[in-house]
Design a binder for these strands. Sequence first.
DNA 1: ACCTGAACACCGTTCAAGT
DNA 2: ACCTGAACACCGTTCAAGT
Lengths: 236, 236
Amino acid sequence: MTGAPTGRRRRARPPQLERSDIIDTALVLVDADGLDALTMRALATRLGVYPTALYWHVGSKAQLLAAVSALVLERIELPPDHDTTWDRWLVDVAHLCRNAMHRHPNLAPVIGSQLVVSTTALPFVERILRVLEQLGLDSEDLLHVYNTVIGCVLGWITLELSRPPEDEEDGWQDGYADELQAVHGTAYPMLTRHHKLMANNAFLTRWQSGEERPMDASFAAAIEVLVAGVRARYLS
Amino acid sequence: MTGAPTGRRRRARPPQLERSDIIDTALVLVDADGLDALTMRALATRLGVYPTALYWHVGSKAQLLAAVSALVLERIELPPDHDTTWDRWLVDVAHLCRNAMHRHPNLAPVIGSQLVVSTTALPFVERILRVLEQLGLDSEDLLHVYNTVIGCVLGWITLELSRPPEDEEDGWQDGYADELQAVHGTAYPMLTRHHKLMANNAFLTRWQSGEERPMDASFAAAIEVLVAGVRARYLS
DNA sequence: ACCTGAACACCGTTCAAGT
DNA sequence: ACCTGAACACCGTTCAAGT
C-alpha cells in the first residue's frame, strides 16, 4: 500500500535495505530502550544507512509504527480450533494475545492507539470469526460479539501495560502509597477498608505498570467474565 | 506531588500562570489540533509566556499529559447510586465514560497508555467500589471485578478511538475496501461472507476511527455482556 | 529503484539570571 | 516563588542529486 512499490521489472541489484528488516530492527530498538528511543536517526545508524533512506521504504515514522505493531499481532500463532469449544479456544487465545503484548510492553501504547485495518491481520480475524460461528448467531450479533471480545481483550491488556510518566524522582512508590494511606478518615471508606488489596493492584490505584507488576489473576477473571457473559447473552 | 510547591508563606504576588490554566489550555489545544499539535512552545505562546515557564508548574511534557488525561476522567459526573441496582448503574457509568472520552478523542491514546494512580481519580474509584459492594463479594473478588470493569470499559473505548497514521494520501478508504474485497476466493470464507457487515465496522477491518465512525451498538453489546458475565460468575 | 547528503523547520529541556 | 532569555542537543521530513 504505502511502502516500496515492488518493481514490476527485474531490479538491477537487490536493495541493501529490506522493508521487513527496518520493521524488525525498529521492534528491537523499542524493546530494548523504549518507544522514545525509536528514532528515525537511531534506526538508520543501527542499519548502517542514512536516515532519509528509511523513508523510501516505510513512508513515515507513523507508518513504520503501524507496521511494527501489526508485526507483533501477526506473530501470534492461534491454536487449532477443531476438537475444542469456542469458549475454551477464546480463553486460550486471550492469553496468547496477552503473552504477545507482554513480550513487547513498550509497544502497547501504539497497539492500543493504532489498531486499524491491516491486511496481515486478516487471518487472525478470519479464525476468530470461524470459531464464533459455533455460537450460531445472526450476522449482526456476530459482529457485536467479535467487537466485544477483541475490544475487551486487547483494550484490557493495553491498559494493563500503561505506565506513568517516568519522572517523579521524589516520592515514587512511597509517595503514592502514602498518598493512598493518607486518604484515611471518612472521605473514602471503601478505599480505606480495601487499601491493602487495592494498593498497586488495581487500575487507577497502582503506580507500577503491568510490565513490572502483571495483573494475572485479574486478567484471568476478566476473561472468565467475558466468556460467561457471551454465554449468558447469546446462548439459549 | 510534582508541580508547583504551593507556598507555605503568603506569596509576594499571585503568579500570572496557574497550573490549572496550563492543563486546561493544553486540553483545548489537543482537542482543536490533535496530540502532535500540543507543544510546550505552542502552549506557551498561547498562554503568552516563555516555554520554559511551563516547566516550573508541570515538570515535564509527560507529566503535563498525565495531568490532562486525569482532568477528563475527573470531569465525569457519576450518577447517584441509591435507588438503583449495581448493573443499571454500571451501564450508565460505562456510557458516561464513553461520552467523556469521545468528547476528547485525540486524547484517547494518552488515557489508554498513562492510566495510573492519580489522587483526583480516587472519588471515582471509591464510588465504583461502593456500588460493587452490593454484590457481596470477598475482597479478592471485588478487586477482580473492579479491574474487569475498568479495564474492559476504558480499554474498549481506547481501542474504539484508535486511528491509523494519517498519511496514505493514495488508497485511503477505497484502498482498504478494495483490499478487503480482494480477499475473496477461498482463503477467507468468513470474511467474504460477512464482508458487508465487517467492512469499516469491526476492529482490524475498519479504516476509520471511532471518532468518525462510532461503534455505538457494539459498545452497548459489550457492556451487556460484561454485566451479564459478572452476574453469571459472581452471583448465586 | 534505491540511497546519499545537505538543509529546513522544528522539538523538549537545562540553567543561569532576573524580579 | 515565579518567570525570562539564551543555549544545547536533538528531532522528522523534504528534496535534489547521485548510481
